[in-house]
Design a protein around this nucleic acid. Structure first.
Lengths: 204, 204, 204, 204
DNA sequence: TATGAATGAGATTTCATTCAT
DNA sequence: AATGAATGAAATCTCATTCAT
């Protein structure tokens, strides 16, 4: 929606969206590298090159600002492509491996905000909805695969819970432990997810 | 309350450990329910029923106190029993299902401290070591199962990365989303983990 | 000065006086209900439905705006009618009883501005002049009554000080204390004022 | 209660009450001379010679501090002596005349806090209770006088409303208008109050 | 060991005012 | 006349930490 405003061809106009974006960018930069509580509004304003008060002009509170940043981040974590079924799943896992390397900053912020969300209603809701959305997407893929294999689609939800959980857990491990071999882990997850589709049917 | 200390049943010395524990307990209570940054030393002291200054007598800083609490929490998250091999794995998964319900407070704190650890060297190290230890234990079990089945134990580490990751991810989802069906998820994880042991060999 | 502008031929032009008045009205509404320091220019602008900057276009500063509002309010506190002498006094007291009910908002603002005026030169001057004017009007009536009764008009000023003081004090009590019986108080004041005219002559 | 602590003969003890009092004194000084909104916690701390944070250590908020100061001020406004009946009334009026000169600072603060109290629940309650108390005391005196004169004590409350109202109004006028002759006003009030006791009986 | 007063830095937030358009 | 983005100062409040007793 912000984009619409910047698509105005007349570049001479005051473009408040630019300022808002500058602040959002600055907030993301600082928050992802320093953490939620170690980042002050003052620092964000400095990073953005604007007066401190302006941050509150665009975002009512620090919480609201963080929430806006979170929404941006969530979008950046998308790992699914256009392909469907098993091919789509494999492509997504492949993509995830590279995202794990290129989006460390976003992951950093995301994981920290999970923690923040545990004690902050609004952030918590944002995180929860994002997790639900992602899990839902994984469930769709699982359902497609199960359909391809012509077996009971029942366990799709449970499988999605595990797969998305493992994705979260792999993200955490790769952030926390510099020695963690994330490629190996993602490959194993892919194998387990795709092979386990059958047995899951019986046990769930 | 202070009087208890005068029950110097053992050596004539005062027993500071009592006080220290009281503070640790209080810190855990408050931290797990309110979060790291929403909990002040003053509140912890009040919860423990001691003077504010005493907290700094036992713990050099808030960070050190949190670190000490973290160690306690890590111990509480143990899910493995004495059994070995596949039976041990199944028992651990069973146990995990109940721990998910009974240790919400510990999980809350743990997950938040993962976030804190991303920007705090000391907490980060504590978390990382704990995660490595857990993953190592899972790896041991995986190795036992693979041995039982007389197949290549090579993928044990990768499997452990996925399984422990999924455990973390399931913890997060159960904390964040009140509608999350964690039993279903753990059952699916158990099925995937135990059935997928074979295919993992080829793909990793 | 407002009048001059509105003497523009009539309705064909945009009527800035309208805007100015809108702002004044909005300021009165907010100030009287929220208080001086709890009301921001931004709120007043919103209440008036104009841009924030426009408030400063019409009023150099918040102080000036408040001063303008004060003038309006003062006019609204008039309690004297056209009648003279004792009849005029009685009518004024009667009128005061109903004003106490219908102008609570104006009284609210007035009383608060008395407080503000104690530490703000300009507001203080406005309040002082208004009080002097009111007291002068009371003094006129007192003088008429004393003349009617053919006694020394000397104590008129002192009586006015008391009567106007009591009016202020009754306003305050009726604002501050929801259980205050203002009718009873005003009746007593009327009785005391009119009966005391004689004895006052001796003691003052 | 604070006094008790300072009555400890051992003057070597840390006397927190001293610090609290220092802050209260400083707050009164600044508030009465600069006004509620023009006085910052920082200034009060400086006036008291303590760190800013200490003010919040003793008083949870600025509001609470002001409330505490208000209580002190209310005590200082007492104008009644030990005498009873008409003599007591006359003495109180006499006393009031000098208090008007000597307690300008307290009156300043009191009047401003009436204004503040209109939009601040807690301050408002404090003011209301104080006004009720004072009015009650005046009512007692009025009742004594009426009893002395053996007439109906019914109008005592109404008379008190007027007399205390006039006292408030005279305070305001003497603060706001440097030319106001307060002695003259108080004398007139005394005369009106004492002479009007009779007619009031009939009219109220 | 234990207390709690005292410190001082820093964080969020509010707001009157200015200014370019 | 009108807009609303932008500024910068200041205010309240919180808090980890220190220190004298």
């Amino acid at each position: 929606m912000l984009v619409e405003r910047s698509t105005k061809t007349k570049e001479s106009l005051k473009m408040p969206a630019d300022t808002r974006d500058k602040i959002l960018q600055a907030a993301f930069t600082r928050l992802s590298s320093q953490g939620y509580e170690n980042t002050s509004i003052k620092e964000i304003a400095e990073e953005a090159g604007v007066a401190q008060g302006l941050v509150h002009y665009y975002f009512k509170s620090k919480q609201q600002l963080v929430l806006a940043v979170l929404m941006d981040v969530c979008a950046k974590l998308e790992i699914y492509g256009p392909e469907l079924g098993e091919a789509g799943a494999l492509a997504a896992f492949e993509n995830f491996k590279s995202v794990l390397r290129t989006r460390r900053d976003a992951h950093n912020l995301y994981v920290e905000l999970i923690g923040v969300g545990l004690h902050d209603r609004e952030v918590g809701t944002g995180i929860r909805d994002d997790i639900r959305r992602h899990r839902g997407e994984v469930e769709d893929i699982a359902r497609q695969v199960l359909a391809q294999r012509e077996v009971d689609p029942g366990p799709a939800r449970a499988i999605a819970s595990v797969v998305w959980g493992a994705i979260l857990g792999i993200i955490v491990q790769s952030l926390v432990d510099e020695d963690f071999n994330s490629d190996e882990a993602v490959d194993a997850l892919a194998a387990m997810a795709l092979s386990a589709v059958y047995p899951g049917t019986q046990s769930a």
